[in-house]
Design a protein around this nucleic acid. Structure first.
Lengths: 163, 163
DNA sequence: TACGACTGCTTGAACATTCAACGACGAATG
DNA sequence: CATTCGTCGTTGAATGTTCAAGCAGTCGTA
């Protein structure tokens, strides 16, 4: 009987987990507040503009954009609706798939991005990179890549094998 | 004229930042979904129960709880209202400060926590600790402590000096 | 004690996110 | 071609979060 006792976190893991929770909470609040104040949008929305700006013709299929941003299609749909109201993004029908929509970064959107970028970078730097050694930046990158890969829907993350 | 060109992120920093964004987004979604499904509450709320459960007499002043959890008092107020409806937390007047309120973990709340804990730990482990070496766990802890300290309202984080 | 400034906590409205359900189209199968 | 199933993207309702404002109690100071 007895479902086996769960493997609790050891002391080091516990401390790391709590430090992570505190730091990530504080960091995302910090970044969000800065962007909201100086650019009138939360970081999630800013990130969408960045992805679009780097994409050929500054446009991307909704699903691709959602996947890159690691957000749900639903969330993206709402987000783009808002960005559209601000005139920063425009929707266009996809020429090759009649179900599809393209999110297109407008000139106004690009301008908003350009205006917001310096303050944003400064915030990220001040909170993160200015405080870490180069070696720590490397370590953090490595760790986060492992975590992200493990959770990516693609990678066949967990398991024996599904099905 | 010309405000000086912002110090952009170098390539390594850029990659680390994007990996961090992806990983933290995926991780918090993963954890939230697991808890929402199995315990009927988001992680933020779960964390509140944890703090209370570890506190003497399972109670804490609202402001202290907010500070520990790194959330705003407003957010805590709403959260406790919801936890109170679930019967997991109860409010009591603070005996020493008539403005104050204590959040008290009820027996039901404690039971909910006990029930949720194993699944939660398993989720955290599976997504994070099972994938990292001991050394990486140490590194991550160190890095996150630095970030958290830098952003703590206490530390007098930024600046010349206020006032 | 009276005053002003500050702290503790709450409130409601605006905004963002999740979740389940849906309509429309595409692709595979017979 | 007809069926069936999967994908694309959206919607609305429920839920959570932010922000600015507010009331009530406390503290410092004269």
């Amino acid at each position: 009987m007895a479902t086996t006792e769960p493997r609790w976190l050891d002391d080091g893991q516990q401390k790391t987990w709590r430090a992570y929770l505190a730091a990530s909470q504080l960091l995302s609040d910090h970044i969000d507040r800065q962007l909201q104040r100086d650019a009138g949008m939360p970081h999630t929305y800013y990130a969408l503009l960045v992805w679009l700006s780097e994409s050929p013709e500054r446009r991307m299929r909704m699903t691709d954009l959602a996947e890159r941003s690691k957000i749900t299609r639903s969330r993206l749909s709402h987000a783009v609706a808002r960005l559209e109201q601000n005139g920063w993004v425009r929707r266009e029908d996809c020429p090759t798939d009649r179900r599809g929509q393209m999110a297109v970064l407008t000139d106004e959107g690009f301008a908003a991005l350009v205006a917001a970028a310096p303050g944003h970078v400064e915030a990220v730097r001040g909170a993160l990179f200015d405080r870490l050694t180069q070696e720590q930046v490397r370590q953090l990158g490595e760790i986060m890549r492992i975590v992200a890969e493990g959770l990516a829907p693609r990678g066949g993350a967990d398991l024996p094998w599904r099905r």
